[in-house]
């Protein structure tokens, strides 16, 4: 991997390709999971996979892995908020 000084980090092609393959694999998993009989947990599974996927995209394609503390914190706050919002809906979805 190339690493340079400060502002602009360049991610190598090999790494990008690996991430891409991981994303494809996770997409396949999402499709598979719909075939299983999991009830309400199906949503949980699908969401976990979606989180992993967006985590990869954010870390590598959007460079968050190489950004400064402030930006990471801001993103973290937004994501935690989203997680709480989605989490609370499970009191409905899981017990309906």
């Amino acid at each position: 991997m190339t690493s340079d000084t400060g502002a602009h980090h360049i991610v190598g092609y090999a790494k990008l390709a690996q991430v891409w393959l991981a994303l494809l694999a996770l997409t396949a998993l999402t499709v598979l999971i719909t075939r299983l009989e999991l009830g309400g947990y199906k949503v949980l599974g699908a969401l976990t996979i979606a989180c992993l996927k967006s985590g990869l995209v954010i870390a590598f394609f959007m460079h968050m892995k190489y950004e400064g503390r402030l930006l990471r914190w801001l993103l973290f706050v937004a994501l935690v908020t989203l997680a709480i919002f989605i989490g609370l809906t499970f009191f409905d979805v899981l017990y309906r």
């Binding site: 908020t81 609370l88 009191f91 409905d92 899981l94 017990y95 309906r96």
Partner: peptide, 22 residues
């Protein structure tokens, strides 16, 4: 205030657990 939105949905067919929590 960001965690209470479900109180608009007590009669919408939401689960009883959710009604209690919200």
């Amino acid at each position: 205030g960001s965690l209470v939105w479900g109180h608009h949905m007590f009669t919408s067919g939401m689960s009883d657990t959710a009604i209690l929590v919200f």
